[in-house]
Amino acid sequence: MWRYLAEAGAVFAKDMRTELRTRVAFNALGLFAITTLAAVSYTIGPYRIAEADRPYLLSALLWIVIFFAAMAGLDRSFVKEEDSHTAALLRLSARPLVVWGGKLLFNVVVLDLLMVILVPLYVVLMGFEVRSITGLVWILLAGGYTLAVTTTIVAAIIARASSRGALFSVLSLPLLLPLLIFVIQGTRAVAEGSAGGVISALRAVISLGGVMTLVSIVLFPAVWNE
């Protein structure tokens, strides 16, 4: 187990080093999120939504910004291996599950970094009232993980496809729609201060994340060795 974690950590560290060299994923996710936030904040702002609609609409907008930003860069982890012809070498030097673990860790860290910057900005610019910060943190962590685990396996699939184009968004978004419903429901419950709503949404998100993790562990070798 420790050996597996150390090897996955090495893949993660390699990805982080190459990412810091080029900053393609960081720039894509960060700029997309900030630009979308600026557009949403400018066109809607904190006062154009009726008080009763605020928890639901602001929760939905927050997750739409996060989801579309994720679509802009989370496929990089696998696509860059194919583009730079390093995938074959990685296949020789690491077991499939080690690669999957390292790439998943990379996507989770990138997404969490994005949320650390984006969410406070969103709260300030949109006047989003959060009644339970702990609840919001749990929803963001669980939602972020499930988003990362789903996009990691889809990124592995599209990296092996001949024409990638918009395929990452086309394949990821439908699979992520149930998650989008659960996290919006959970964030709305956070804004309304409903602990029951947060727990119910967290259960659904964690279940989906757990199932996606197990299925990815079983299926990833078939995609990676193809």
Partner: peptide, 19 residues
Amino acid sequence: AVADPERRASLAAVYSILA
């Protein structure tokens, strides 16, 4: 989006299970 028949079949199989 996948030209090679064998690769198409296995990637589609993985996606079908995920779906």
